[in-house]
């Protein structure tokens, strides 16, 4: 049984199924992180003894991490963009089905690899931050700020790990699809990219709220 619009755009909605799906999924993610941010606002406003956050957490490391994560978003876009000219050329030459000559993948491999690497760097820096907190006896149970700090950044880190697993799949075993269904593969990279940007955006909210304010 073939489900329509998995690869092609439905004309009257202008969407493919996976693209709509990922946007809906992200809408629910917005509500998840939104709930945590509201919890943060409520707890902070109700606690006169809330610590001065920037003295507790490591702002320079987090700034570095922000730059790392934004860069990884850029490389993700470049990875996707490296696929589209090949597709476009295939379309203009008008060949149907699988292309006779394999489409180039060098740039894609480079940028997707970089995205993965930057994700790993982000997690390593995060790990350094965490172990630094633990070694100073700063635990989630110390106070509600640290509790939320660990909960929210931890949940975000899980999202980063999830994204990296998908990206690794698209760089490794998932790459097979490029020769059989290139358009579908490019769509997958695009969808993974949308998710990856969302993870980035969450961090862009977490960073000021947990480190700077």
């Amino acid at each position: 049984m073939i489900v329509p619009y998995t690869t092609d755009v439905r004309p009257d909605t202008g969407l493919t199924n996976p693209k709509l799906g990922i946007w809906l999924f992200l809408a629910s993610e917005v509500m998840l992180f939104g709930s945590l941010f509201s919890a943060y606002a409520l707890l902070r406003s109700g606690d006169p003894a809330w610590p001065d956050q920037s003295t507790v957490v490591n702002v320079p490391l987090a700034t570095l991490n922000t730059i790392v994560l934004i860069s990884s978003s850029v490389t993700m876009v470049l990875a996707w963009a490296s696929l589209t000219p090949a597709l476009a050329s295939r379309v203009t030459t008008g060949k149907a089905g699988a292309p006779a000559t394999p489409l180039p993948l060098g740039r894609y491999r480079l940028f997707m690899g970089l995205t993965l690497l930057l994700g790993a760097v982000f997690l390593c820096i995060k790990a350094v931050e965490y172990s630094d907190k633990f070694s100073h006896g700063l635990l989630p149970s110390t106070n509600n700020f640290l509790g939320l700090y660990f909960t929210m950044t931890g949940l975000h880190a899980l999202h980063v790990i999830g994204g990296m697993i998908v990206n690794a799949y698209l760089l490794g075993p998932g790459l097979k699809m490029w020769s059989s269904a290139p358009q579908r593969f490019a769509n997958r990279v695009e969808v993974a990219g949308i998710y990856w940007h969302f993870v980035d955006v969450v961090w862009i909210f977490l960073f000021p709220v947990l480190y700077l304010l």
Binding site: A27, S28, M31, L32, G34, S35, A39
Partner: peptide, 11 residues
């Protein structure tokens, strides 16, 4: 389901 459940997930 999509928009309300995440609040309980967070909780």
């Amino acid at each position: 389901l999509l928009l309300a459940f995440p609040a309980l997930q967070a909780a």
